[in-house]
Nucleic acid binder design. Structure first.
Lengths: 170, 170
DNA sequence: CCTGATCTTTACGTTCACGTCAGCTTCGAC
DNA sequence: GTCGAAGCTGACGTGAACGTAAAGATCAGG
C-alpha cells in the first residue's frame, strides 16, 4: 500500500500528500461527521493545521490514530468520554517519551515520569485483561457445549452403524 | 449467599419463594425498568405467570437468565436486537434438547436438530473468538509497552549505581 | 382495615453517538 | 474564471437503551 515516488519535486522519503477529511474517513472506514465529532470531544486533538481556507488537513499518522480510537472503542466497549481519558493518559505517555529523549532531565524526574507512564499502562491493562478473561471464559463455555453436541452426533453415528436399518441419511 | 432452610413449612428442596421484579433487579444489579424493557423486546420471555394481581413473579432461574443476558450484552457489545437473535437461537437449542430427550425421534431428525444446534454454536463462537483474539492482541501490545518501560526503569537504576553522584533519590 | 412500599401501564424525557440538512466557502480541474 | 465536488459551521433529527413521572392497583405487616 502507499505507492512510493509520487511527488514531482525532489523531496525524499515521500512528503505524505496531505489528506482531506473525506479521504481520512474512507481510509479509516468511517464518516467525516464522526471525525469532526471526535475532534470536538477532544479524542482527535483538533487538527492544528488549517492553512488559508478552513479545511482540515491530515497526515497518515492521523489516520492510524483514528483507526486506533475506533478499535479501542469497539474492543473496550467504553463511552467516548471514558475513552478520551484513556487516550489522554496515552498522550501523556507520548509527551513523557519526548521529555525522556532529552538527556538533561534529572534522573529523579526521569523515574517519576516512567512510573507515571507505568501507572497509566497498568490501568489500561487491568481493564483489558479483565475483559479478555471474561471473554475467554465465555469462549470456553461455548466450546464445551460444542464438544458435547459433537459427542452426541458421534454417538448417533455409532448407533447407525450398529443397526443397518436406517442407513442412507440423504 | 442464599441462606438455606428458610421456609417454615416442611417442603423439601426449597420451594423457591417467588421473587418480585424489584428483588430480581437487585439480584441482577439492574432496575425494574430494564427488566420490563427486556421483556418487551422479547429478551426475557414476558413472565407468563401473572397470578391474580398483575404483578410479575420470577424464579431464581429467571435471575440467572437475566444475569446471562447482561453479561453477554457487555461482553459482545451487540445491540439488544442482535442479542435477541443470539438468545433465540440459544432457546431453539434448549427446545432441541427437550426434543432429543424423547427416544422416539427418528435418528435422521435427531441429526438434523443436532446439526442445527451446531450451526448456532459456531456462529456464536466465531463472534466470540474474533473479539477474544482482538482483545488478546491489544493485551499483548500493552504488555510489550509495559516491558519496555520497565526496561527503561531498570536501565535508570543501573546508571544510578554506576555514578554515585546523584544518589539518595528521596 | 389501613397504610406505606411496591407494582402496573402509559407516556414523555434524556444521553450517547452520530446522521442529515441548510447556507455558505473552498478546492481542483478544465 | 467557472463550476461541480467537497468542506465548513451550526442546528436539528434519530435510534438505542433506558430514566422518570403520573395515576392508579396490589401486596405485606400491624
Amino acid at each position: 500500500m502507499s505507492a512510493p515516488g509520487e511527488g514531482g519535486s525532489g523531496v525524499v522519503s515521500a512528503p505524505e500528500a496531505p489528506l482531506r477529511i473525506g479521504d481520512v474517513a474512507k481510509l479509516a472506514g468511517t464518516t467525516p461527521r464522526t471525525i469532526r465529532y471526535y475532534e470536538e470531544l477532544g479524542l482527535l486533538a483538533g487538527a492544528p493545521e488549517r492553512p488559508s481556507g478552513g479545511h482540515r488537513l491530515y497526515t497518515q499518522a492521523e489516520v492510524e490514530r483514528l483507526r486506533e480510537v475506533i478499535r479501542l472503542k469497539e474492543l473496550l466497549g467504553v463511552t467516548l468520554d471514558e475513552l478520551k481519558d484513556l487516550l489522554t493518559a496515552e498522550e501523556a505517555r507520548a509527551a513523557v517519551r519526548v521529555q525522556l529523549r532529552r538527556e538533561d532531565v534529572h534522573p529523579e524526574r526521569r523515574r517519576e515520569l516512567l512510573n507515571e507512564a507505568l501507572g497509566h499502562l497498568d490501568r489500561q491493562l487491568e481493564l483489558v485483561e479483565h475483559r479478555a478473561s471474561e471473554l475467554s471464559k465465555l469462549r470456553r463455555e461455548l466450546t464445551n457445549t460444542r464438544e458435547t453436541v459433537l459427542g452426541r452426533l458421534d454417538e448417533l453415528a455409532s448407533y447407525s452403524e450398529m443397526s443397518p436399518a436406517s442407513q442412507r441419511p440423504e
